[in-house]
Amino acid sequence: MPRRSFVCRCEDVTLLELDHAIELGLSEVEELKRYTGLGTGPCQGKECMSVLVSHLVRRGLVDPTTVQPFTARPPTEPVTLGALAAGLPAEPES
């Protein structure tokens, strides 16, 4: 197995791949997320967000005093479709 250094293990994003996206001119947290897939897997960035931003700060690509994480979309914890369905009033929709 080749040596790889992972930033995001959910979506298999390596440091090399992150740097490749940066070379293409991307530097914003939101666009790097979308281009590399980082943070879009089951953990939704809980493991990788700070690794990404540390890397961007270290490379001088973002201003540490203003950088923001990507949007923390719900759900932040697992919720099933069946439980969500229980949240509707009992009467059927017209």
Binding site: R4, S5, F6, C48, M49, V51, V79, A83
Partner: peptide
């Protein structure tokens, strides 16, 4: 059975802690 909880609090106190990031090293997976 799973329970969905709709919470309408007067106030909220969050103490959700901290997460442990990975360290990017060869074969850290």
């Amino acid at each position: 059975a799973e329970v969905l909880r709709s919470i309408f609090p007067r106030q909220v106190l969050l103490a959700t802690g901290a997460r442990d990031p990975i360290i990017p090293l060869p074969n850290n997976d």
